[in-house]
Design a protein around this nucleic acid. Structure first.
Lengths: 337, 337
DNA sequence: CTGTTAGCGCCTTCAA
DNA sequence: TTGAAGGCGCTAACAG
C-alpha cells in the first residue's frame, strides 16, 4: 500500500540500509549515492513511517501535556508556550485536558507511561504524595509547571513564587490603606486542591500579619474556579455589615466575578471596593484590572526546554526555576477612603 | 528493560499469541487461561506498547487537530469540545497550534499524512484550492470545522452559517435605527484569509442592501485579529466626521478593541455607539457585549464524532452540518438617537 | 562506503 | 482452544 523504505532502495538500486543512512544524515554515504537515493525519495514522494521508526528506536517521540486548559484560562497561555517551543523539535505533543479529579488520575496512570510518551509536562494540576511517589518510581522524565508544593522538592519544575505574589497583591492593598481585605479562591482542600491558591493565601496571611493584622476567617471564601461562583461568594462577603473594602482574588477569572458582584450590589470599583486579580490574562488589560502578572508563555517554553534536557540526561539534578511575578497596577484599586 | 508480551506469556505459561488474544478481547480463550493471563499481567504491571501495536495494526491511533488556538480565542473552546469527545476513545490527540501561514503550510504537509495520523481536524483555518486538492488526493480522513468556503463543498464539515450570522447582527442594528454601520474584521485577503470574516462581511452587505442601504467603503476596515489592532482601526473610523453610530465586529476580541477605542475617544456605549461582536466567548457575558453566539464546544464534539465515522467508512458521502447561530442582545447596543 | 541481517513488540494467520 | 511463525517499516550492528 504505502510506499516503504524498501521501494526507495529498489528504485535507487541500493540496499535499504543505505536509504536509512541518508534518511538519518549519516555522513558515511558517497555523495552520488546519496543523490540517487534522494531522487528516488522525491519521485516516490516517500516519507518514512514515524511509527516504525519509533518502534525501532524505542522512543515514542511524543511528549504529553496534562493540563486543565479549559477550567484555567491562564493555562491556555502556558500551553501556547509549550506548543511554541515544541514545534521545531521532532516531538509530537499530545494534550490531555483535565477537568475532573478522575480524569487527572486516569491521565497520570495511563498516559504518563514510558510506553506512551518520552516525557511528561504537568501543568497547574494538584499533586498528591501518592502521585509524587508514582512518578518517582516510574522514572519517566517529568517537568511540572506551576505547581508549588513542598512535596515536589525533588522534581523538575518551573514555578512562580505564589506566596510572594499573594503578598505583593495584599501589600499593595495595605499600602492603599485597606485593612479589611477579603480573599477569594478555589477550594483549598481535596478533592482538587490547586496549590497556587493555597500559596497565594499564605502570602495573603503573611502580608496581613506583617502589618500587624489578623486574617479574619469570614473574609476568605472558596468556591469553584469560575466567574459565576466567585460572584456568588463575593456577593455574600460584600453584603456583610463589616464588609471588606478590598478583595484579592486568586485568579483574574475570579476577580471578574468579584467585579460583577460589586456592580450588582451597587458598589463602585475602585471607589467603594478595590479588587486585585492574579495572572494578567489577556482581557485583564482591557478591563483595567489590577493584577499580578505571571510569565505564562515563558513558563511553557521553559518547561519544554527543561524537559528536553531531562530526557537527554535523566539523572541530572532536579531543577526548580522560579519565575518572577509582578504587580500590575491598573484601575480597580484605589486608596481606602 | 520494559516488560513485554513475551514476559507475560512466559509467566502465565502460555504462548504469546494467547496473551495477545486476551488483550484484544478475543472470545476464543478459555476462561481459566484468560484468568491466568490476566493475573500475570497484573503481577507484572504490564501494559502493551501502543507503538508496536500501531505498527502491527497499520494504524496510528492518533488524530491531529490543526488550529490557530492562540490567535483565535474562540478556537480554544472548539478545541475543548474536541478533547472532550476524544477522551474516551482509544485515540490520542495531537494538536498543532498555527500562528503563521508558514506553519499552516507545514502542518498541512507534514502532519496531515497517513503515516502520522489516522485522521485530521482542521479548525478555523483558511483553505486554498491547492490545499483542497492536496487533501482530496491524499485521501486522509478529514473534517473541517468552522471554515465555510464554496471550494470545500465536498469535504466533511461542521460550520455555522456566517453569512446569516452577520446578517442577524446587522439587522439588529438596523432595527435599532442605525444606518451608518461599520464593519471591522481581519484582513479578507491573502495571505491568511479567514473565511468566516468574509462570510460575515457578506452578511453585513446583504442586510444593508436588503434595507436599501449601500455599504459605505469607508466603513469597513481590516486589521490583524487582535484587540489592539481593532482598537486602532476603530479609532480611525470613529474619528471621521461622518462616523458610524454602530459597529459590527467580526469577533468578540475585535469588539473589545472597538469598545476601547470608544472609551478613549469619549464615546459612550451604547448611547453614542452600538457595538456587536461575534462568538460569545466566555468573557463577553461579563462585559455585557451584544454578540452572535456560536455553538463552539459542540462544533468540536461533532467534528470528532464525524471524523470517527469518516475514518470508519472513508467512502461515505461528504457531509456538512450547519450549526445554528443566535443573536444575544446585551447592553452594548441601543436605539440610534 | 554499502548490502545484509537481526531485532523493536505486537497482531494474525496457520497448524496442531 | 492454543502455540508457533511471519510480518508491520525501520534502525543499527556486522560484514565485506
Amino acid at each position: 500500500m504505502a510506499i516503504t523504505i524498501r521501494d526507495v532502495a529498489k528504485k535507487a538500486g541500493v540496499g535499504l540500509g543505505t536509504v536509512s543512512r541518508v534518511l538519518n544524515q549519516s555522513p558515511q554515504v558517497r555523495d552520488v549515492t546519496r543523490q540517487r537515493v534522494l531522487d528516488a525519495i522525491d519521485e516516490l514522494d516517500y516519507s518514512p513511517s514515524p511509527i516504525a521508526r519509533r518502534l525501532s528506536l524505542g522512543k515514542t517521540h511524543t511528549i504529553a501535556a496534562i493540563i486543565p486548559f479549559f477550567t484555567r484560562p491562564a493555562a491556555v497561555e502556558r500551553l501556547r508556550g509549550v506548543t511554541y517551543s515544541i514545534s521545531g523539535t521532532e516531538y509530537d505533543l499530545i494534550v490531555a485536558d483535565i477537568e475532573t479529579p478522575e480524569r487527572r488520575v486516569a491521565a497520570f496512570k495511563e498516559l504518563a507511561r514510558r510506553e506512551r510518551v518520552d516525557g511528561v509536562l504537568i501543568i497547574s494540576l494538584p499533586f498528591s504524595e501518592k502521585d509524587a511517589e508514582h512518578f518517582k518510581k516510574s522514572g519517566i522524565p517529568l517537568v511540572i509547571i506551576d505547581v508549588n508544593d513542598p512535596i515536589l522538592h525533588d522534581f523538575n519544575r518551573i514555578v512562580v513564587d505564589d506566596i510572594e505574589g499573594g503578598r505583593k497583591a495584599v501589600q499593595h492593598l495595605l499600602d492603599l490603606g485597606h485593612t479589611n481585605i477579603g480573599y477569594i479562591s478555589d477550594v483549598l482542600e481535596e478533592p482538587f486542591p490547586f496549590s497556587a491558591s493555597r500559596a497565594r493565601f499564605t502570602g495573603y496571611c503573611q502580608a496581613l500579619e506583617a502589618a500587624g493584622l489578623n486574617p479574619r476567617p469570614d473574609l476568605h471564601r472558596h468556591g469553584e474556579h469560575s466567574r459565576s461562583d466567585a460572584k456568588i461568594i463575593a456577593a455574600e462577603m460584600l453584603r456583610m455589615v463589616d464588609r471588606p473594602t478590598a478583595i484579592f482574588a486568586a485568579s483574574d477569572t475570579q476577580a471578574f466575578g468579584v467585579l460583577e458582584a460589586a456592580r450588582e450590589i451597587g458598589l463602585r470599583v475602585p471607589e467603594d471596593l478595590s479588587v486585585v486579580g492574579y495572572d494578567n490574562v489577556e482581557i485583564a488589560e482591557h478591563l483595567g484590572l489590577t493584577t499580578v502578572q505571571q510569565l505564562l508563555i515563558e513558563s511553557g517554553e521553559k518547561g519544554v526546554r527543561l524537559l528536553l534536557e531531562v530526557m537527554e540526561d535523566p539523572l541530572r539534578e532536579p531543577e526548580c526555576e522560579i519565575l518572577p511575578s509582578e504587580l500590575i497596577i491598573r484601575n480597580t484599586t484605589a486608596p481606602h477612603s
